[in-house]
């Protein structure tokens, strides 16, 4: 099994799409840190200074240790979307190129093949998460220096970062399973990417409708069972730890994340649903 995971990771890490997606991710991470520098440094010179409260909030997003909340937000936000695209292309590509037949004709076992592919994706996600933290912290140090902000990291912060890493990684896995499921059921790259992004957009639309009170209380309760809310409830723990409480901000709209217990159960259900769908598809469908 380790040999199968190892060769799948080889196929994944050498894929040009992974490099492109990571370059986009880094570019957006840089933007996340240096756009505030621009706003805080240049806007006052143009006579458009932010009010002190807004400026302080913006400074917090690029200043360590609070900047960790920004980094983890980026990981599970745009990072999740980009990794989902990679997963859809990686699993679906085997069908599109006909490689599934080449590999399965040698009888590795269909479940084993799928598990090797998913494990390679999970490993990439782990590396992605781990690399993001020093990269983001480096950006924060530079941005903070440009803005003359005091920065500090205590040992307790590092403990929270470690917990945050684990939560961020686990929070990415259902999205990888979602893309894998679509790619297997649709037997191709297009199904993998379009299916998972479609689902992601559906949940965003659901969220927007819920925030703007377009769904009624029943619809809002249902929204709290979505994948986005279930992942959000856990990743918000990290943001809260670094003084960025999205839940509290949402609370101004009378809106809150589900409980950790409910979201934990829902993540398990989503994992079983997407993983089971992919498992059923690979075992039962023609390759």
């Amino acid at each position: 099994m380790l040999a199968a995971i190892s060769v799948q990771f080889l196929a994944l890490r050498k894929r040009p799409l992974v490099k492109v997606m990571f370059a986009i991710y880094v570019a957006l991470l840089l933007l996340q840190f240096f756009a505030p520098v621009g706003l805080l440094r240049i806007a006052p010179q143009l006579g458009n200074a932010l009010n002190p409260e807004a400026a302080l909030a913006l400074e917090q997003t690029v200043r360590l240790p609070f900047a960790f909340a920004t980094i983890f937000g980026q990981i599970n936000g745009i990072g999740g979307l980009l990794l989902m695209i990679i997963a859809g292309a990686f699993v679906g590509g085997d069908y599109t190129w006909g490689i599934t037949r080449t590999l399965l004709a040698r009888q590795p076992g269909r479940g084993r093949y799928l598990l090797a592919k998913f494990s390679a994706l999970a490993l990439l996600a782990a590396i992605w998460v781990i690399v993001s933290v020093p990269l983001g912290a480096g950006c924060a140090l530079l941005a903070g220096a440009l803005l003359d902000l005091p920065q500090s990291i205590a040992l307790a912060d590092l403990t929270l970062v470690l917990r945050g890493l684990l939560i961020a990684w686990v929070g990415l896995l259902p999205y990888l399973a979602l893309a894998t499921c679509w790619a297997v059921l649709g037997r191709g790259v297009v199904a993998g990417i379009a299916g998972s992004i479609g689902y992601w957009l559906f949940e965003i639309g659901f969220g927007v409708a819920s925030i703007f009170r377009m769904l009624g209380s029943f619809g809002e309760r249902i929204y709290n069972f979505t994948l986005a809310q279930s992942v959000g409830a856990w990743t918000d723990l990290t943001r809260q730890a670094f003084n960025l409480d999205v839940g509290r901000a949402f609370g101004q709209f009378g809106f809150s994340f589900p409980s950790l217990l409910q979201s934990g159960i829902m993540l398990l259900i989503y994992g079983l649903l997407f993983g089971g769908g992919a498992w059923w598809g690979i075992r039962r469908r023609i390759v």
Partner: peptide, 17 residues
């Protein structure tokens, strides 16, 4: 085969699986 990988890497993948 994976078009972006070398012949050797592709054989590694088949053998590894």
């Amino acid at each position: 085969f994976y078009p972006y990988l070398s012949a050797l890497d592709n054989l590694r993948i088949v053998a590894g699986h």
